[in-house]
Write a protein that binds this DNA or RNA. Structure first.
Lengths: 191, 191
DNA sequence: CCAGTGTTTAACAATTTTGTCAAACGCCAA
DNA sequence: TTGGCGTTTGACAAAATTGTTAAACACTGG
């Protein structure tokens, strides 16, 4: 019942994919980084693809539950948004390549179980609509409101490496830039 | 001087990477899709990596020039933004995985030539600042304004496959959703 | 027509990556 | 201590991917 190694391998893989951004790492690279024999990947996960599948599914699931949790919090609307931004930014800065990995993998694989439409999400969309009635945020399809929020949060971090070059920014400058995002987003969203 | 085949191969590669989203396509897959012998990839490009490098560089360059062109247009601010949104949306819908490809490749390679900071970009940032003075858009660091715009444009398309699953949306529904983005973004940006 | 030049192909070789298996190891319980 | 069981390892095999070469081909200019 020694799950430590299995977990170590999986965590190492996630670190390589999500943090270092080495999106086509080989099993050898993962094993080396974890300090174990490559055979163990097959022993515990069967094959490279199955390891990827597991990592992928857990990443999607963690994203989903993270979103769920944030949306279900018993807080006033604005605070809820603020907390969500903080949580999301922290996560996306820790694992800047997580969403990129999901995108590169989603095209190939088709193993995501189709779950029922999220109840918390529906409730939160209503909450957004109510807030529009109150006039604290702009009127639009609540779905667009949510997507705007996600976009402004994720995109600058995901595309950091690209825009740093496109705009010729230094790393420290870009770091500072990301730090400012929370306030910018709040100002952009609330009237 | 028969450049047709070389071009065919390169275009096919771009189609596979940027449109189909097969971000780790093999040389064989590319050759098959182009209907040519795999050896030609080596004949024209030397190696797989050099082909990737060329595709990558051209993608970055096209993005840069597309941006440049839009920013340099002699148009009133709002129309300039509108046109930019249209051009960008058309591009990003035609090649939804282009930016994802750039992100997955940028980490490995280091072959991008470092160009001087874009003059048009600087001019446009001033233009944005002037517009804030006029009060037609919200006050913030012009860089953030630009990033907000990029984010709201790109992210929903890039992450389409993911959020379609996360939110359990049908394809046609998501298509319609993207269609609405232009108006939503304009409403979100202009006061 | 013919030589020459650039293009394309098939067969082969090399490399890289993944998968398998039997044996060795370590640890706990009988 | 020893037998058993899950874990780990190294050596090997298989598969997949990329790179190379010589020859066939096609076309053009002389």
């Amino acid at each position: 019942m020694e799950k430590a190694t299995e977990e170590l391998i999986k965590q190492t893989a996630k670190d390589i994919f999500f943090r270092q951004g080495n999106l086509h790492a080989t099993t050898q690279e993962i094993a080396d980084a974890a300090g174990v024999n490559r055979t163990l990947l097959n022993y515990y996960f069967g094959s490279r693809d199955l390891l990827f599948e597991q990592v992928y599914n857990e990443a999607v699931e963690s994203k989903r539950s993270q979103l769920d949790e944030a949306l279900a919090a018993k807080l006033p609307f604005r605070e809820k948004i603020e907390r969500f931004i903080e949580v999301y930014l922290r996560e996306v800065r820790q694992y800047p390549f997580k969403e990129s990995f999901l995108i590169t993998e989603i095209s190939n694989k088709d193993f995501m179980q189709h779950k029922k439409k999220n109840a918390n999400l529906i409730a939160f969309l209503d909450e957004i609509a109510a807030e529009m009635e109150k006039g604290t945020i702009m009127r639009m399809d609540p779905m667009h409101f949510l997507v705007n929020l996600f976009s402004m949060l994720s995109y600058p971090v995901i595309m950091g490496p690209l825009y740093r070059r496109l705009f010729d920014l230094s790393n420290t400058k870009y770091e500072r830039f990301i730090d400012e995002r929370k306030d910018v987003i709040l100002k952009s969203i609330f009237i």
